[in-house]
Amino acid sequence: MDLIVLRNKITAGIESLNLRSNQILNLIKMETYYDPKDLKNFGKIGEFGQELADKFFDYYGNVFKDSALSAREKSLIALAVAHAVQCPYCIDAYTSDTLEKGYTEDQLMEAVHVTTAIRGGASLVHSVQMMKQAKKLMM
């Protein structure tokens, strides 16, 4: 079927159902590698190896406690790192956590720009190597 015809049929169908945008999104359940519901099962990673999981969660819990850095500060660092490692679960979790800890949306965005600056800088600083090599090779 022509894609435009198909799109029009879907649009007409959705309009006839009088659905809201969030309901439409809920209806379109696409299968992907990442399922947001999996985040809830993070605690079950011990199923295939409880001892190390217990050690990890114990460590994790201690890392995020108030200490030389506050739990609040650590949450914002976690959000920035989540973007660096591009972990969708971590992004969901620490977006909620930082908002719950009172950070504002512009503060969250600034943290992501820190990630971007470091990631971008990490690429750009390698250009020094590229330039050295280019200069060596070229007349």
Binding site: D66, S70, A71, R72, S96, D97, L99, E100, K101, G102
Partner: peptide
């Protein structure tokens, strides 16, 4: 929003 309150003392 649709979030829970965080630690009262910290806030």
């Amino acid at each position: 929003g649709a979030i829970l309150p965080s630690d009262q003392k910290g806030l």
